[in-house]
Design a binder for these strands. Structure first.
Lengths: 193, 193
DNA sequence: TTTTATAGTATTGAGTCGATACAAAAAGTC
DNA sequence: GACTTTTTGTATCGACTCAATACTATAAAA
């Protein structure tokens, strides 16, 4: 049995543990839990199909009940807004409030990571990213979880013009910025861009 | 600002979150928390200098109080044994009990990961490992945390013969198997083996 | 000897998290 | 259209995490 993958797992777990301690520190006065900050970060990046409790549950790997609690707390503190979907009225849509955005901006939850990776060449970062992405994809395949990704590398995305794209799965037109947000319907393209 | 490091962070966090769900599932009947399994895995790998509550706290990035609670629980369930150090009687030494080892053997907490990485070439694994290790080292430098590592790549380790080594920092002789355990006194060597 | 530092434990309180049960809306079935 | 079933989310509960604080015991320093 090859032990190298285990070493990699160990690193992933340790880094995640340490970054969670960082998150705890960075949220400072607000005394948010790490998972709260992770939820805020996710919401700051989610596109229109993915700004729901369900997608967030899938992203965080937590049950919907747990996530519901998290969202209740974030709502009470005025960091997010919840509103009903017009079409499917079971669905709740989520977005960061102004103070939620402000908090993320001030807390800079990834600052320590930025520093920690400053001396690693872009090329090595890319290689590591690609390896981990593959691990994640396989892990989710076995688990029927969503991969999440940007439209820019999604199989469903059709480029209509320089600024406008279209999601082939949902049929909506998407602006440039929207194509750089996270989507849980993401399907990796065969060809690398 | 380069966004690639952030993508890597996202992957690390997601993988860790998912593996934590896996841990929850794998511990099965024992209904252990992910942290408990992580502690057991650590203890199964720690060397003689690192089998203490303090080293475990440092490894997990938790406070000593928190870790103390974890150890209490593991002790109550008979998964670990605690005993006093002969020389410094403040120090508590930890080791897995037989049922602790059994549990790890049966739960196979890394099985999902092994599967997820089965199609990634050893070379890419190594590259990713090296990049993440560097990130971890830098992160810990800023934080004065311990890096942890095996004697086989430690600057303090002196090879006396084919089977016997010696820790230059502590002065003890170490057997072959012992040099492949985790140590929190680890100092990376300048030269890569 | 006295002081200070270190290793660990005990307790408390806010919060996580899954499990279960529930409500409401949508979708499928006859 | 009336019915079941599925999907989306919430409410409640209990075991547990985790940090903070205060504490004990031992060791090291002054």
């Amino acid at each position: 049995m090859d032990k190298n993958p285990l070493v990699l797992l160990e690193l992933v777990e340790r880094l995640a543990n340490l970054m969670r301690s960082e998150l705890r520190r960075s949220s400072g006065d607000e005394s948010l839990q790490p998972v709260h900050v992770q939820a805020l970060v996710y919401l700051s990046r989610a596109n229109r199909y993915s700004n729901t409790p369900q997608a967030l549950s899938s992203y965080l790997g937590l049950t919907k009940g747990t996530v519901s609690q998290t969202l209740l707390l974030l709502d009470r503190r005025g960091l997010i807004e919840r509103y009903q979907d017009d079409v499917d009225r079971r669905v709740v849509r989520l977005r960061l409030s102004t103070s939620g955005e402000q908090l993320l901006y001030e807390a800079q939850p990834a600052l320590a990571w930025q520093n920690a990776t400053r001396n690693i060449s872009p090329n090595r970062i890319r290689n590591a990213t690609s390896a981990l992405r593959e691990a994640l994809a396989t892990l989710l395949e076995d688990n029927e979880g969503a991969l999440f990704g940007e439209c820019t590398t999604c199989a469903h995305c059709q480029k209509l013009s320089q600024r406008i794209s279209r999601c082939g799965l949902m049929g909506d037109r998407l602006s440039g910025p929207e194509t750089r947000r996270l989507c849980w319907l993401f399907e990796p393209r065969g060809d690398e861009e």
